[in-house]
């Protein structure tokens, strides 16, 4: 049984949606300022930069300084969005994010693009597979991984509207559009996109559409599964997780990230304390990425629809 209306006829990169929404926000909110570290073309902050040059700071290739400047701007009431690739925004500037931003609960939004294996050919140095783990481990930071462009726009608006630091994890490639324009984002809220009783697949980001495809393939075998989109990794939608764990009795998590510290960890940590059920984590298994096309990489690292289906069958 299908719950939400998901579309999948158009596709859009979440970074493109970010750049577009940031521009729109800039027009209505003068407190929005944007920082980038020489990747504004790739992160799509260049659109904001062209429209509002006086509110855009390209700090050069200096991510640590970028995060520190963002913290300083936030102390004076600005709402800084700081962007780079996820590897650099989270990894290179982690201590700055920790001490200058998160510790002070400052109103800085880290919007990092090019997360995960889907960066593709640039290889391991540019494929962040641990950024969710890093962000989740810091108190005060909310962690968001939108599944498509529509959800990205909603998440950017919500991130700007709340007080406090937010990590937005965005991707490079185009991904199918899953949601209609009425789709809303709220921290701590996920949605059931499909309902079935045999298992629940919980996914986020670019993997949600693969989870839906896997659910369709399983349905053709007579295996009906629930699919939950969980864009808010911190806070999690604990109520929804409990509900699907109780009703399905088995959970498979799916993410374009290491299974250490990401969505799979977050779900396992919660369910193992509150309602233990058999669980499988589909994700990168303690490995670095490498060069290749996104599709070849998803195959090589076990992130395909077939891998998701296999994980579900293992639990039946």
């Amino acid at each position: 049984m299908r719950m939400g209306e998901y579309i999948m006829t158009k596709s859009e990169a979440t970074r493109d949606a970010y750049g577009e929404e940031l521009l729109a926000l800039g027009q209505v909110n003068e407190r929005i300022v944007v920082l980038d570290a020489d990747l504004s073309g790739s992160t799509r902050t260049s659109r904001f930069a062209r429209a509002f040059p006086e509110r855009f700071f390209n700090v050069g290739i200096a991510e640590q300084n970028m995060i520190g400047i963002a913290a300083g701007l936030a102390t004076a009431g600005k709402i800084p969005f700081a962007s780079s690739f996820a590897v650099f925004a989270l990894g290179r500037a982690y201590d700055q994010l920790r001490t200058s931003v998160a510790y002070n609960n400052l109103n800085v939004k880290i919007a990092a693009t090019h997360a995960g294996l889907s960066v593709g050919a640039d290889g391991a140095s540019h494929q962040a597979l641990e950024d969710i783990a890093l962000a989740r481990a810091l108190p005060n930071i909310r962690v968001v991984v939108p599944a498509d462009g529509v959800e990205t726009r909603a998440a950017v608006r919500t991130a700007a509207a709340v007080e406090g630091p937010v990590y937005l994890r965005l991707g490079r490639p185009k991904v199918p559009v899953l949601f209609g324009p009425e789709h809303e984002f709220a921290f701590g809220r996920g949605q059931k996109l499909r309902e079935g009783s045999r298992a629940a697949i919980v996914s986020c980001g670019v993997m949600t559409y693969r989870a839906l495809r896997a659910a369709e393939a399983l349905a053709r075998e007579g295996i009906e599964v629930t699919v939950v989109n969980m864009p808010s990794l911190k806070p999690l939608d604990e109520e929804l997780l409990l509900e699907v764990a109780r009703s399905c009795g088995a959970v498979v998590t799916v993410e374009e990230h290491s299974i250490i510290g990401g969505l799979g960890s977050a779900v396992a940590e919660f369910l193992s304390e509150e309602h233990p059920v058999p669980l499988r984590r589909v994700g990168v298994r303690d490995a670095f990425g490498r060069s290749g096309t996104p599709e070849d990489l998803f195959q090589a690292y076990g992130l395909t629809e077939a891998d998701i289906c296999r994980a579900v069958r293992e639990l039946l």
């Binding site: 300022v33 520190g68 400047i69 300083g72 701007l73 102390t75 200058s100």
Partner: peptide, 15 residues
């Protein structure tokens, strides 16, 4: 880390 945050404060003051 402090000098970077001071740069951010100074930028905000000027803006």
């Amino acid at each position: 880390q402090g000098l970077s945050t001071a740069v951010g404060m100074a930028l905000a003051g000027r803006m």
